[in-house]
Write a protein that binds this DNA or RNA. Structure first.
Length: 431
RNA sequence: GGGCGUGUACCGAAGUGGACAAACGGGUCAGACUGUAAAUCUGAUGGCAUAGCCUUCACAGGUUCGAAUCCUGUCGCGCCCA
């Protein structure tokens, strides 16, 4: 147990991460009186997780920092059904193999952010372990009896779909809440998990779990709480976590540490302090300090840098964060063509790249066409537009629609750096 | 089962025989200004061999010199009746 034990609920509150708790005084007492276990569930809908999932992961991490034991529940079972919350449409069912594969692929993410050693080690469980063996008759008799259909159809996520004639809701998804409730009950019973953490949109599913525990567990063991965090929003009203190229993922195969770092660095001023509180472990004093620096000297972008550094370090590790930052510095210094080969090589690993045959350069290669090849432009029309706008540079030299590439544009004999707009880089290697 | 209505680009929404690759708004992308920010202004937003050509207005046919627009059928959706 850490010597300076932070108070979990206080911590969430000053960070703006506390939305609602089923019984705040109760959960405070509970946490103060021992080492507790809390869980958060994750849906294996893909083979990676996005920064949207980073909030609950960080909730677990903070819980751990507060001296308790976090439990990650991977939805190997619930993922086979699909949570209707926030979904307009019925989901396509995934195969057991697919879901298992996703569970396995997501596991390392948790392993890098949470601590799995020591007295308050984190643990990971897969709810397929207990949901997979359930028998229909038993569930209907032992669990189903405690759910009122009248209440279930009142749930926001269900009601929406019930009144929507175009979509409707299947019995399968309608029953999702029962499985999530069962998870909580099972974890209470077998792992002494007393708290469920989640986003405010999960409130309904979470309290259903508390209800079930109250009904199925003897009085001595029926204490349970739920704590929710607010959903992350952006100051400009846009959807959090989206970029020009799509979602921001937590694994390097889908979003490079460089792109990840850049995402945070480009956060809006109005969001940066909030994000520091949400997505980093920096202490209150440090964040207050950054806030005042940010207010007096916004152009230095200290808060942004620190946010990007801290978040990237958490997800990708210190080395990757350093490389990502260095790559960004190199690219935005405006002196790329003067960088030495070793630095360039490092930068290359971080940004999108492609290989080409040197022979293509021969008598001059049309940039209009080449831009499409590098996927910096979607079509030649767009390519011409970018070039016409003066949005494209080759090794930091501005080029136009009539320009061509030749072997004179190669750095160190075989490399070329193309930029579209302010931030989209592409590296070409010519062999 | 019957009646009426409706289906347009990423989204919303005009257009009801030619000047329509299709108004307008949002979104998105780019340029300028900045701080790799926001706001603002400007431009772009089906594709290409770009003074031009090709493919689009749910789908399949038809009328016409000419169709997003008219007709027929199919499908989806909405409302009303049974």
């Amino acid at each position: 147990m850490p010597t300076t034990r932070i108070n979990f609920i206080d911590e969430l509150q000053w960070r703006g991460l506390f939305y609602q708790a089923s019984d705040e005084p109760g959960v405070r007492d509970h946490l103060a009186s021992g080492t507790r276990r809390a869980y958060a569930g994750f849906d294996p809908t893909a083979d990676s997780l996005t920064i949207g999932n980073l909030v609950p992961i960080m909730m677990l991490r903070r819980f751990q920092e507060a001296g308790h034991r976090p439990v990650v529940v991977m939805g190997g079972g619930t993922g086979l059904i699909g949570d209707p919350s926030g979904k307009e449409k019925e989901r396509d069912l995934r195969t057991v193999e697919e879901v298992q594969g996703n569970v396995d692929a997501q596991r390392p993410i948790f392993e890098s952010i949470l601590d799995f050693d020591g007295p308050n080690a984190a643990m990971i469980v897969n709810n397929y372990e207990w949901l997979g063996d359930l028998k229909f008759i038993e569930v209907l008799r032992d669990v189903g009896k405690h759910f009122s259909v009248n209440q279930m159809i009142q749930k926001e996520s269900v009601r929406e779909r019930l009144t929507n004639r175009e979509q409707g809701i299947s019995f399968t998804e309608f029953c999702y809440v029962i499985l999530q409730a069962y998870d909580f009950m099972w974890l209470r019973r077998h792992h002494d998990v007393t708290i469920q953490l989640g986003g405010s949109d999960q409130w309904g599913n979470m309290v259903s779990g508390m209800d079930l525990i109250r009904r199925l567990e003897p009085e001595s063991r029926n204490e349970s709480w739920v704590v929710t965090n607010p959903l992350v929003t952006k100051a400009d009203g846009g959807k959090f976590g989206k970029t020009e190229t799509g979602a921001v993922w937590l694994t390097a195969d889908r979003t490079s540490p460089y792109a990840f770092f850049q995402f945070w660095l480009n956060a809006a001023d109005a969001d940066v302090i909030r994000f520091l509180k949400f997505f980093t472990l920096l202490p209150q004093e440090r964040i207050a300090e950054l806030e005042s620096i940010h207010e007096s000297e916004p152009h230095r972008r200290e808060a942004h840098r620190e946010l990007a550094r801290a978040a990237t370090m958490l997800v990708h590790g210190a080395d990757a964060a350093e490389t990502a930052e260095a790559a960004g510095k190199a690219l935005f210094s405006g002196e790329v063509s003067r960088l030495d080969r070793a630095t360039l090589e490092e930068v290359f690993a971080e940004v999108p790249s492609s290989n080409h045959a040197k022979a293509e350069l021969g008598s001059g290669l049309s940039l209009v066409e080449f831009l499409v090849e590098t996927s910096l432009a979607k079509s030649k029309r767009e390519s011409r537009e970018f070039l016409g706008n003066g949005a494209v540079t080759v090794n930091e030299r501005k080029v136009g629609p009539d320009d061509t590439l030749s072997s004179e544009d190669l750095l160190h004999g075989d490399l070329m750096l193309i930029r579209r707009g302010k931030k989209s880089w592409h590296v070409c290697r010519w062999g």
